[in-house]
Structure formats: structure tokens, C-alpha cells
Amino acid sequence: MRKLVSFLASLATVASLSLAQIGCGHEHDENKHGNITTLEVILTDGSTTIRAKAVDLDGDGGNPPRVDSLFLPAGRSFSGRIELLDESKNPPQSRTEEIRRDADTHRFRFSVSGGAQGRVIVSNLDRDSKGQEFGMRFDLRITSGAATQGSLRITLEHHDTGDKSAGIFDTDIDATFPVLIGASAIASN
């Protein structure tokens, strides 16, 4: 019978130890790390700065992202960059450097469609340490011509093997900006 009591005692010990371990619970702190709510495109040519944001403050689910239109003046060239932010925090936190540090496994891809196809040309993407395209900084040129509209889709591919030509990637960000090409510059914001 004594053995029985010691059995019970050891069971209780194991149980209480384990409960203690999970008892000191964490708060729901998801999204503290690695969360990106906002992708901002910033285009400058020395005199003009054009900005457009895709923002999804509530993360997956909830409301769809709010996406600004990009108003682009025909016949101009810009140097562009992308900023990544977590705007669910107050004050908003930049995630740009986090992704830049992982340039070797990430790649921004730009695709233009609709009437903007052939009119908006993205080139000269910056490179990672292995000389592969990264694309956080780039050049964007708008050819001359009539006013038209289309879209610019910016995706952030995550190539976890580090070989960006392998075609093995997940999509981390996928935002499509409506593009309006006007006859002259309209600086947004």
C-alpha cells in the first residue's frame, strides 16, 4: 500500500511540474514578429516623389487590403524603392531592413499589364550578394504616349533554397496596384 501512495505522489509531481511549465502562459503575442502590413512603392526623380501603398492592417482574413492607385506621368524616368512596414504597431515599425538582410532568399518581381503593358518598364533591379536580382531598388520608366490605365503587380518571392532560378518559392506578398498613366506628372501625397 505504501508503494501505491508513492506511485500517486510521483504522478502528482509529474503533473504539477508539467502544469507549472505551461501555467506561466504567454499572452497572445502573434504578429509581434515578421508581420508586414504594408508595402509602399516610392518613386523619385529628384524633383517629384510618387508614393503608393498597399495596406492590410488586420492581416489575413478580415478586410481585403486597401491599395492606392499609382499615377504615373508619361515620358519620365524614376528611381524606385520599396518600403515594408508593420503599421499595426504604434508607432509603425519598418520591416525593410529585415527583408534586405535576407536579400539572398528574396526577390521582388514586377509585372505590368493592361494598357500599362509596354508603357511602364521596370529595370536595373538591385542584386543580392550572389549577384541575383533582388529588386528592392529598381528603375521605372514610363514611355511617352496617350493616357491609359493598367496595373503593376509586385510580388515578394521567398526562395528558401537561395537559388532564385530554381523556381522553388512561396509568395510572401502579392499586391496589384492600379496604374493610371497621365500626360503629365501628378505627385500623390
Binding site: L19, I22, G25, H26, H28, D29, E30, N31, N35
Partner: peptide
């Protein structure tokens, strides 16, 4: 039963 949601990147099920 007690279900604890630890430090994680995303929400899927509650505690």
C-alpha cells in the same frame, strides 16, 4: 483540459 497558445507567428486556434 487546458490548451495554451504559445508565442507564434500567426493565429489559428485559441487557448
Amino acid at each position: 483540459q487546458f490548451n495554451d497558445v504559445g508565442r507564434s507567428l500567426a493565429y489559428l486556434v485559441p487557448r
